[in-house]
Design a protein around this nucleic acid. Structure first.
Lengths: 209, 209
DNA sequence: TGTACATCAGTGAACGCGCGTTCACTGATGTAC
DNA sequence: TGTACATCAGTGAACGCGCGTTCACTGATGTAC
């Protein structure tokens, strides 16, 4: 039998993923700070000590969850923004894509929203890092298109950060509202984006500075 | 001796306040979900069972902390917005007032930022209620001034919510940045507000709907 | 004002329980020859 | 291919500890007369 990955390594990764999945499920109604290592291993069906073969502690597991959730999202938002269409179309598509992603993996987004300002420092830092990267990616796209001509790097970053924060707030609001309130949240999110877009269009109108 | 308040009641309130203060101090680096009732009473110097004379559990204490922090803020933001001055002045004053409040009682604002999307449902609900009230108060002020003429109630609420969310994000960013990064956070917060204000000024320009 | 009784904020012992971490271990997988 | 040894993911017992909650209690404060 060939061993392109190695049976042992494959099994280890499987257990690690099971720990991540179990933790995410346990975190539906609580925050990471109150999650116990024994709870996670119990849910997976391994001995408590097996946890240490994969993570130093629950904070390290949290950082891994951040990477699992946000690491795979890079390029996505930039791709949405880069697609053609007038600003109203683009705006509606952005909100729809966010809503679809949140509906597809609610646990992951709930975790991010909850821990973004949560009590576990390394996790907070990991989320901040990823979101800062998103903001830069968005800023790069916005700066490259015609409407971004004449914008300073700082202003582009400010706008990118605004879009990213808006995205996270929208995701959190969608989760809080549940399926029944989704339509209303989407409506308000679009309205907000529309207002920001208007502000963007007139950003360079003002008095010289 | 007259008993305008009652010695017993006064002492009880004092203990209750001590519990609230101790809890807030303990929550500087953690979230409410991981706060133990015994930690709080230990910090105050009373028996664990004394806790139950004041709160059913730590979630109830959290709700009381929400009221202590946000309950006293009503009218403040509305007052800032209602004050005279052009939009740029008003904008700078708003950000300064927020920064001053955060610097004056960092623990309280950290608590709100952390628990806004946190793992304790009753606390999350209490914060959402208070912030919704703020949004309505802001919307009322915005609707009453000339620039708000022609705005629908829904649009005013959207804008009020945007300002409130921006305020909370700014408070959180100030706490995360510390004294050293405060100036930069304030700069970006002003820039964002300026963009929103521009969007507001052109909200009614668009195609009829 | 004085006395007798009621209230109730805070006490302290006790309980069963789940926690994180340590340690020496087992046995399947991997590797060297 | 076969054998002998190394690696290491997962085990299971054990530990000391702090937790939330119960209960009957104490003694200062409050109230009725």
């Amino acid at each position: 039998m060939s061993h392109t990955v190695g049976v042992r390594q494959a099994q280890k990764l499987k257990t690690r993923q099971a720990l991540l999945d179990a933790a995410l499920a346990l975190l539906e109604h609580r925050s990471l700070g109150s999650l116990g290592l024994r709870e996670v291993t119990r849910a997976v069906g391994v001995a408590p000590t097996a946890f240490y073969r994969h993570f130093d502690d629950t904070a390290a597991l949290g950082v891994a969850l951040v990477e699992e959730t946000l690491g795979s999202l890079h390029g996505l938002i930039a791709a949405i923004l880069a697609a053609t269409g007038d600003s109203e179309e683009r705006l509606e598509r952005s909100v729809s894509v966010i809503a679809a992603h949140v509906a597809a993996q609610p646990g992951h987004f709930r975790f991010i929203a909850r821990e973004q300002h949560g009590g576990v420092a390394p996790v907070r830092a990991a989320i901040a890092d990823q979101l800062a990267l998103f903001a830069e990616e968005v800023a790069a796209v916005l700066g490259a298109e015609p409407a971004g001509a004449g914008w300073s790097r700082q202003d582009l970053l400010m706008l990118g950060g605004l879009y990213v924060d808006h995205m996270v707030l929208t995701a959190s609001a969608l989760l809080e509202a549940g399926p029944a309130g989704e339509a209303e949240v989407v409506r308000v999110a679009r309205r907000r984006l529309r207002l920001v877009t208007l502000g963007r269009q007139h950003w360079l109108d003002g008095p010289a500075r």
